[in-house]
Design a protein around this nucleic acid. Structure first.
Lengths: 146, 146
DNA sequence: TTATAAAAAGATATTTTTATCTTTTTTTTT
DNA sequence: AAAAAAAAAGATAAAAATATCTTTTTATAA
């Protein structure tokens, strides 16, 4: 569905939102550790997210990654767009080049409704929602045993 | 969404279904030409589909690929399973390892319904349906201009 | 103001996917 | 039986995604 980079980015965003606040930032290693992803690869991903302003960072001692209020409103769709591009919005499910409303692929109209709901889901769910869910229910960012 | 191999496989299956019948088979080159895919790559894909019995083939002069009645009932889901594996059935949308009914990811329950409809779509639509659709409406396997 | 801690940036390596090329086997026709 | 046509199989290459390593820049704290 999504690329590894994108999956890691989603996990990282959730992790940073949970662990950081205005004064305490989260270091790269901690993020990688907490999400079971390779450190140098996570570094690249955090650089990208930082460049695109989905998270903020500060260098130097006690530096690290953190989020402002706007960042906490980031949706999954935002993260997917930033890492994988707008394929889910624009591309034909079957990969047909000329598929559109006028010349639809065989499943175009049937998929339209599903796609709409799927995108709505990605746009509706924000990092904050996840934090709230974490309080009550459980889910895991690490590949640990349940 | 799906891999290139899978997209090409779907196109090839539709093409063979349209162009072949009991006596006349379709050659590899014709399939590649008709679906805008590189010949040697399509060769690989047809070998796989043939090995997995989604199409049949015969060697020698006037040989080529063709479908029996059972093949015409192949669904998109069958093609996806054969080429990309069962990821769409088994994997978490967000890529979380421990996501399941008991310890769901933040969108697990919300995605469940979408996933169900999506899979139903893939399973419902068969190659035959597409042939029928082709008679009335238009869609393109080639990247030609509309 | 110097040392240090941390991210940013850049360069390199590995793996997977996609694509291509060559040889072999099978089948049909002559 | 020989030639030819076609897919099957195997080997190789290119591109993209994933992963790693090294150097540079920045900011803090001693």
């Amino acid at each position: 569905m999504f690329s590894k980079s994108c999956e890691y980015a989603i996990k990282a965003m959730i992790f940073v939102a949970q662990k950081s606040d205005s004064d305490s930032k989260v270091g790269l290693k901690e993020i990688a550790e907490g999400t079971d992803t390779p450190v140098p690869f996570m570094a690249k991903i955090m650089q990208e997210l930082s460049k695109k302003k989905l998270v903020h960072s500060s260098k130097g001692p006690n530096g690290g990654f953190y989020m402002n209020k706007k960042n906490l409103k980031t949706s999954i769709a935002d993260i997917v767009l930033a890492t994988d591009g707008d394929g889910i919005y624009s591309k034909c499910v079957l990969g047909l080049k000329n598929c559109n409303e006028k010349t639809p692929c065989p499943v175009h109209h049937e998929y339209k409704d599903i796609k709409k709901k799927f995108i709505a889901m990605l746009e509706k769910n924000t990092i904050t929602d996840f934090n709230e869910k974490l309080m009550t229910k459980k889910f895991f960012l690490k590949n640990e045993e349940n």
